[in-house]
Amino acid sequence: MKQPLGVILAGGQATRMGGGDKGLLELEGQPILSRVIDRLAPQVAGLALNANGDPARLAQFGLPVIADSVADFPGPLAGVLAGLDWAAAQGAETIVTAAADTPFFPCDLVPRLLLAAEGRPHQMALAATPHPKRGLLRQPTFGLWPVALRDDLRAALGEGIRKVVIWTDRHGAGTAEFPVDGIDPFFNVNTPEDFALARELVGQNV
């Protein structure tokens, strides 16, 4: 099986941070997005950024920038679709997605997603973490996605489906559980308070 390509989802509008690109916020002099790239790049065969608007603002990262093909910011599934279309043009079979505002995600994300997808109807799996009250929480922006289902996803978006797990459950996706050791490894920067916490964690070498 070919190694997946990686797609970093940076297409959100960051409304709770006052707009702009959360991935460009700096932690100890390094953009969050650089930290995401450093974690994902060794795990995949190639990498692209999914982002909308002027791609020139992301030129410093030296990666292809692919925009949503579905209008009005319909959410992460639109970014997944953009990534699948890009990967299809590269002759890839799968992609793995990660969020651009999540600087501490696991360095073994890809192998564990691949393992979770074994024996499933499709090479599809979502990362998940345990929650003491809510059970296993799936992480909709951290997943393994098969290129073969890109037209199915396009049709689902056309039907108005926006929630990731509705589509992944439809296709029997696996779940890769990651432990929470102190902090959720998929902690993301959504608010100024989150950003302050991220700065503390970086200082602790998380």
Score class of each variant (00 low, 15 high):
residue 92 A to Y: 01
residue 92 A to M: 09
residue 92 A to P: 00
residue 92 A to K: 02
residue 92 A to L: 05
residue 93 E to K: 02
residue 94 T to C: 14
residue 94 T to H: 14
residue 95 I to T: 08
residue 95 I to V: 14
residue 95 I to W: 06
residue 95 I to N: 02
residue 96 V to T: 05
residue 96 V to C: 00
residue 96 V to G: 00
residue 96 V to D: 01
residue 97 T to I: 06
residue 97 T to H: 05
residue 98 A to G: 04
residue 98 A to Y: 00
residue 99 A to H: 14
residue 99 A to E: 15
residue 99 A to W: 09
residue 99 A to D: 14
residue 100 A to C: 10
residue 100 A to E: 14
residue 100 A to L: 12
residue 100 A to I: 04
residue 100 A to H: 10
residue 101 D to M: 11
residue 102 T to S: 10
residue 102 T to L: 04
residue 103 P to Y: 01
residue 103 P to W: 04
residue 103 P to Q: 04
residue 103 P to N: 00
residue 103 P to K: 00
residue 104 F to D: 09
residue 104 F to C: 09
residue 105 F to S: 07
residue 105 F to W: 00
residue 105 F to L: 13
residue 105 F to Y: 08
residue 105 F to R: 06
residue 105 F to E: 06
residue 106 P to K: 05
residue 106 P to C: 11
residue 106 P to I: 11
residue 106 P to D: 06
residue 107 C to G: 12
residue 107 C to H: 13
residue 108 D to L: 06
residue 108 D to R: 01
residue 108 D to S: 03
residue 108 D to T: 08
residue 108 D to Y: 04
residue 109 L to I: 10
residue 109 L to N: 06
residue 109 L to H: 00
residue 109 L to D: 05
residue 109 L to Q: 03
residue 110 V to F: 08
residue 110 V to W: 02
residue 111 P to I: 10
residue 112 R to W: 11
residue 112 R to G: 02
residue 112 R to V: 05
residue 112 R to I: 06
residue 113 L to R: 06
residue 113 L to H: 05
residue 114 L to R: 10
residue 114 L to N: 02
residue 114 L to M: 10
residue 116 A to I: 14
residue 116 A to M: 11
residue 116 A to N: 12
residue 117 A to P: 12
residue 117 A to H: 06
residue 118 E to R: 13
residue 118 E to A: 14
residue 120 R to M: 08
residue 120 R to C: 14
residue 121 P to W: 09
residue 121 P to S: 07
residue 121 P to K: 04
residue 121 P to T: 06
residue 122 H to S: 07
residue 122 H to A: 10
residue 122 H to E: 14
residue 122 H to C: 12
residue 123 Q to W: 15
residue 123 Q to M: 15
residue 123 Q to R: 15
residue 123 Q to L: 15
residue 124 M to S: 11
residue 124 M to D: 08
residue 124 M to G: 05
residue 125 A to C: 08
residue 125 A to Y: 05
residue 125 A to Q: 03
residue 126 L to A: 10
residue 126 L to W: 03
residue 126 L to G: 05
residue 126 L to S: 04
residue 127 A to G: 03
residue 127 A to M: 09
residue 127 A to K: 01
residue 127 A to L: 03
residue 128 A to I: 12
residue 128 A to H: 01
residue 128 A to R: 00
residue 129 T to M: 00
residue 129 T to I: 08
residue 129 T to L: 00
residue 129 T to R: 00
residue 130 P to V: 10
residue 130 P to F: 09
residue 130 P to R: 02
residue 130 P to S: 11
residue 130 P to M: 04
residue 131 H to D: 15
residue 131 H to S: 14
residue 131 H to F: 15
residue 132 P to F: 08
residue 132 P to R: 01
residue 132 P to I: 13
residue 132 P to H: 04
residue 132 P to W: 06
residue 132 P to S: 09
residue 132 P to T: 02
residue 132 P to V: 15
residue 133 K to T: 15
residue 133 K to P: 00
residue 134 R to G: 02
residue 134 R to V: 09
residue 134 R to L: 15
residue 134 R to D: 15
residue 135 G to D: 09
residue 136 L to F: 10
residue 136 L to S: 12
residue 137 L to S: 02
residue 137 L to V: 13
residue 138 R to C: 04
residue 138 R to H: 03
residue 138 R to V: 08
residue 138 R to M: 06
residue 138 R to Y: 07
residue 139 Q to A: 03
residue 139 Q to R: 11
residue 139 Q to V: 15
residue 140 P to W: 12
